[in-house]
Simulated assay, not measured.
Amino acid sequence: MSATTRRPAAARRLAPLVTVGALLALPVLSGCTDNTRSANDGPSADPRALTVSASDTDCAVSGTQAPSGKLTFTVTNSGSKINEFYLLAGDGLRIVGEVENIGPGITRDLVLTAPAGSYFTACKPGMVGDGIRAPFTVAESGQAGATDANDGELVAAANANYASYVRDQTDQLLSKTEEFAAAYEAGDDAKARALYPVARTHWERIETVAESFGDLDPKMDLREADLEQGQRWTGWHRIEKDLWPQRAKGYKALSAAQRATFADDLVKNTKTLHARTRDMTFTVDQIANGSRGLLDEVATGKVTGEEEYWSRTDLYDFQANVDGARIGFEGLRPILASRDKALDTQLDARFSDLQTLLDQQKSGDGFKSYDAVSKSDIKALSDAVNALAEPLSKLTAAVS
């Protein structure tokens, strides 16, 4: 695959409707659950159950408003292109929830808890452009919509523990990024190459949280293949190419001044991400959706070997995404076990199966280069991801 091939995942985020400063509002993690009905079934009697017909030219939502609480958007792709569906905050930038990679004729659900406020719905046919958007209103209903009151202590513990986990990972991300940037600026390429996948591990473990800040994600994690015409390329992968230019024909190495510019920019944006996560809080549907979103990242970028095109360190990212998904799941297990023991047992087994395969790809303290992974092993990893994705897609509905 060439470096200019666009990845099939929703890596290129929707452009904002407006320019905003630092977003202090809580980003809700993305994700989806298995469908239970088609968008062609017509409107539901439940005002919180909406259908979406996503074609190549239209994004027809069955309603323009809903009561606050747990909402379900059943999205059917009636077009010929792979599609995505988003619920965006009123600023048009922050992603409240998303369901990705909806193939033609496929139906998938987005389940989330939405408080009263103004939003936008958006479909993104072909996974390019700004998306087909429309205003959407959530009216105050007095219903919190998340979990049974009898589970209050378990819910509070799960939410608090995940918030602590996110803060810990961003602490480590900032520390390792500063160390990586210093080595890169100093011209110590061997040290910078060694630190690159280690630092990125902390990004990948909370990738759905980081991506929910639509102004930061393109600056920090955009791949060259996903650049829009005229867009300035910055962040991890710009530096990655400079450290591993072997696959780039006629590549001209960055100057010391250019290195300093890109390294300083990466550290600055990491500090911004770090600051925004200090007071974040989460709900069980956000955690569950985040787990599914992280596994989607594995399926659409890591197992294909597209994410780390230059360094070939994809397995580090693969493991980190799985780590983050597993942490989210494990934090919700006390709630899930009391509601759907069979699903709890199935998810535990599928995570274990996938980890066994990943362990076989380890080399020393890290992982093999992705180029050294056999096609049969890649197929086995892909199959294990798919086997986990199906039950994981049911987690949000089970715990919300």
Rank of each mutant, 00 (worst) to 15 (best):
K362A: 04
F329W: 08
A114E: 01
M127H: 06
V155Y: 03
S80D: 01
L294P: 01
D188I: 07
T76Y: 03
G187I: 12
T57D: 12
G129E: 03
S376L: 08
T113D: 05
S255C: 09
K268E: 07
A398T: 03
T270S: 14
T36N: 10
G366A: 08
G145Q: 07
L88R: 06
D296R: 04
K379V: 12
P125G: 07
K375D: 05
L216Q: 08
S338P: 01
T64Q: 10
K368Q: 13
D242P: 04
F180R: 10
F329Q: 11
H202D: 09
E179R: 14
T208K: 14
R312M: 07
C32K: 11
S78H: 04
V385F: 00
A25M: 10
W233V: 04
E179A: 15
F329D: 09
K362D: 03
V96A: 12
S118A: 03
N386L: 10
S30Y: 05
N386M: 09
G79I: 07
G152P: 01
L273M: 04
A263F: 01
A9D: 15
P43R: 15
T121E: 13
H202G: 04
T270V: 09
G21W: 00
L357G: 00
S62W: 02
V399T: 00
A253I: 02
P104Y: 04
A248F: 08
K368E: 02
A9Q: 14
Q143F: 06
Q65N: 05
V385P: 00
K219I: 04
I378W: 00
H202Q: 13
A256L: 13
F262Q: 05
A10I: 02
M1H: 08
F282Y: 05
D279M: 03
N386Q: 09
P8S: 01
A186Q: 15
P197Y: 10
D296Y: 05
V99S: 13
A3R: 14
D215W: 01
R13C: 07
T177H: 13
K252N: 10
I239C: 00
Q286F: 02
